[in-house]
Nucleic acid binder design. Structure first.
Lengths: 291, 291
DNA sequence: CGCAGATTTGAGGGATCTCAAAAGGGGTGG
DNA sequence: CCACCCCTTTTGAGATCCCTCAAATCTGCG
């Protein structure tokens, strides 16, 4: 009875583009439709299992604040949200962005107090329920438990992707990746990705990506000049004519030597065929132990 | 019967130093002893609830690899581990470090395949059990479930701390924070923090912190020159004579205006609770909505 | 003892930041 | 409806931090 109530665990093979690049676009659209359907379905099931408090929010509304007692978990039903960490000395950092179907509040479980601010950056709706209610529902319904764990796991993986981006990509590539990420998040929720409204200022984007607002602006201008993006009316809305071209642009920056063959599955463990000198130096392995 | 089997949820108020700065050192030591005791206790309880497969590892041993089917969760009983993410284009990133009591493998839950490599960087011991076993144990034992969630939550918070560090601190401050973090992790596990063996090459540290190995080396040399750290024999072992002085050093860099005496790292007592003038520009809040 | 890898240190260059000025956009009140 | 104001964005010029390249030193080990 606790079987696949929530959607199966790895329903998105297309998320990792297979070797066949040609039909990627179609595959991508199919995957997005599937993802969108799944998110809606999960939300519906979730709300049938747990009695939520629903709240409509507007841009700037705060869902929870750093230091507040952790009492509830929140799920985005609509809109966009940012999570902002801050240090005692006044540094602030946008650490995550949240979209429909995403959970907010996991950061509070560890210490019993929320570790960041959750702020709406558009009108939307949040569903909330006390942590204990989830816990109780989880023990009844294994599917819900697995859903919860998957959400936390996704968050961990995504956070690390951010770190990877910030640590290994130059500014313009980070902006390009950010745009791809944003478009992908929209697409997987059934939202149109042409004329995306970014909903964040250059300052917020720059903060999220670890650069100044001026660098964001310059990067966007450069991407526009290279025809990889196009602005709409007010420079707050952006179009990605060709997401793959953006990806190739990033590849070109990362590995200036290697040609455009982006779709290499995974045979590279450097030493073998070192054609693509990764411009990112591999981490020297000390004491590789076993020969 | 599912009550406080695992240690209570927020047992470390001292981790957030209160307004009284003076007795911080004692409070810190007490907190570390407490944390150490708790970690040992949790491990003992864990192993009484779940039948683990135990494995002794040596530096360089791989616990799991990117792309491998996610089958089990792992818990560090001894030693030190790094988690390394990699991209298809060959970039590598140390995304996390793991110590006794930490879990490894959460990244695999979301997609059903591990999303990074887990590699030992010292001899140690790992306890492993299939995910399903944990899940089963969790439904029997609510305390275990909460313990698991706290571990995942801690990981999320820590990952975001890393992002904060990389995005908002200059190189030398990142290195200083890294040393403090490492010392703190050791202290909370009852390990001595004088003559810490870093167990990572400069290249690995630099990768983790988003800088080159040369920058790490220069930063360490500078910290040494300012008497904030001291090297032992082989420059792989480091001593932090005064962790608070290191923290003040970081503060001085972040908010140059706040601390007057920039030259002397010595007897300048940190101003009360420095909620300093953020030299880091705050994120411009668009549409602050409600008046 | 010599080698291989790790580390340090220096010099120069480049990417990004800082500072500054001007243009654009949207909302409000007159 | 328009003027005005405030915020955001763009763009330029110079400064700076960090990276790249290079060479020397150090360490552990076979």
């Amino acid at each position: 009875m606790n079987a696949p109530l929530f959607s199966a665990r790895r329903p998105l093979p297309a998320a990792r583009p297979g070797p066949a690049e040609a039909r990627d676009a179609e595959g991508h659209f199919a995957a997005c439709r599937e993802a969108s359907r799944r998110i809606s379905q999960d939300l519906a099931l979730l709300s049938s299992k747990v009695k939520f408090q629903r709240r409509v929010v507007r841009s700037g509304d705060v869902i929870y604040r750093t230091g507040e007692a952790f009492n509830a978990l929140h799920i985005v039903n609509a809109g966009f949200f940012k999570l902002v960490s801050s240090t005692r000395d006044g540094r602030e950092q946008v650490v995550a962005l949240k979209f429909r179907g995403d959970w907010m509040g996991f950061d509070g479980i560890a210490s019993g107090a929320f570790a960041c601010d959750a702020v709406a950056i558009d009108t939307g709706e949040v569903w909330s329920a006390p942590y204990g209610v989830f816990l109780g529902a989880c023990t009844d319904e294994l599917g819900l438990l697995m859903h919860l764990h998957e959400a936390m796991s996704r968050e961990i993986v995504r956070d690390r992707d951010s770190l990877m981006s910030v640590c290994t990509l130059p500014a313009v590539a980070r902006v390009a990746e950010f745009l791809r990420y944003w478009a992908d998040c929209l697409a997987r929720r059934g939202l149109r990705t042409d004329q995306m409204a970014l909903r964040m200022t250059r300052a917020e984007i720059g903060n999220y990506l670890g650069m100044t607002l001026e660098s964001v602006s310059r990067s966007l201008s450069r991407l526009e000049k290279e025809r990889l993006i196009a602005f709409d009316r007010n420079r707050r809305e952006v179009t990605l004519p060709d997401a793959q071209a953006l990806a190739r642009f990033v590849q070109r920056i990362v590995a200036p030597g290697a040609a455009a063959d982006a779709g290499r599955p995974r045979d590279e463990t450097a030493p073998g065929c070192v054609d693509a000198q990764p411009s990112a130096r591999p981490i020297a392995a000390r004491s590789s132990s076993r020969v």
